Simulated scan of single mutants.
Amino acid sequence: MIISTPPAETAQGHAADMYAEDIADAGFVFAYTRAMAVNPEAHEAFMALIRAIVPSIGVRVYEAATLGAARAIGSPHCLLAHGRKSLRAEVLSGDGLAAFARGDDDGFSAAEQAVVQYAAKLSTDPRGMSDTDTQALRDAGYDDRQIVDITLAAAARNYFSRALLALAVPTDEMPGLDPETAEALRAAAR
């Protein structure tokens, strides 16, 4: 990564908060946090968007959309980070996460699998999206607000993941993931 990121000792405001949160959680500052700390206002706006999305769909559906998009994009950062979050929130078990990395979505419910598939298509063929894709979410039981928020969750993951990939942000080791699962998630990003 060739951009200069704010040093921890001089970071202020939201950037300092970002660093402190990583240190409290993982014991170090992730490379993706350092990259986003270059524009802490943009990161804060991104987090406000996420806080506006999650209440209508819940953490499980948010993580299904996020992981589905991250796998489709090939984002090791987001697969690892949200794999870890999914384990912590008990969205997926360790075996379910490893299976997801290999393309098996059975750790998610049928309705959540519809979200994974929708997020993947949004991430790989957004111009090909049609009412048929939205209808699949409706058929899975999601209402209008939830469909919009699922779309926003997948689109937000595209924004964040693609920014990290474009900036060539290094991928850190992810504490809390066993080595086999972490490697499976990295392989899913290739």
Rank of each mutant, 00 (worst) to 15 (best):
G107E: 01
A11D: 14
R190Y: 02
S75M: 03
G128L: 06
A48N: 13
L97R: 07
D105V: 15
Y159E: 13
A11N: 13
M47H: 00
G83R: 12
R138A: 15
A15S: 07
I147Q: 14
I73Y: 01
D149W: 10
T171C: 14
D149G: 03
T181A: 03
S109T: 14
A69N: 07
T66V: 15
E180H: 03
E9P: 01
L177R: 11
I53N: 01
G13Q: 03
A11I: 11
T10F: 05
F30N: 07
I150E: 13
A45Y: 09
L164D: 00
L67D: 15
V116S: 00
S56F: 04
A140Q: 14
Y19E: 04
V54C: 05
A114C: 09
M36P: 00
C78W: 00
I50S: 03
Y19S: 05
T124Y: 05
A168V: 11
S123E: 13
V61W: 09
D105H: 15
S161E: 07
L92F: 03
I53H: 13
T33P: 07
D22I: 06
G27M: 09
R162N: 15
G94Q: 07
T171N: 12
M47I: 08
D25G: 04
G58I: 08
D133R: 12
Y19H: 11
S109V: 08
D172Q: 04
F108E: 10
S56P: 06
I73H: 03
R138N: 12
D139C: 07
A16I: 02
Q146Y: 04
A153P: 09
Y62I: 05
I150W: 05
I53K: 07
F160K: 00
I2P: 06
A70Y: 08
H82L: 06
R71I: 10
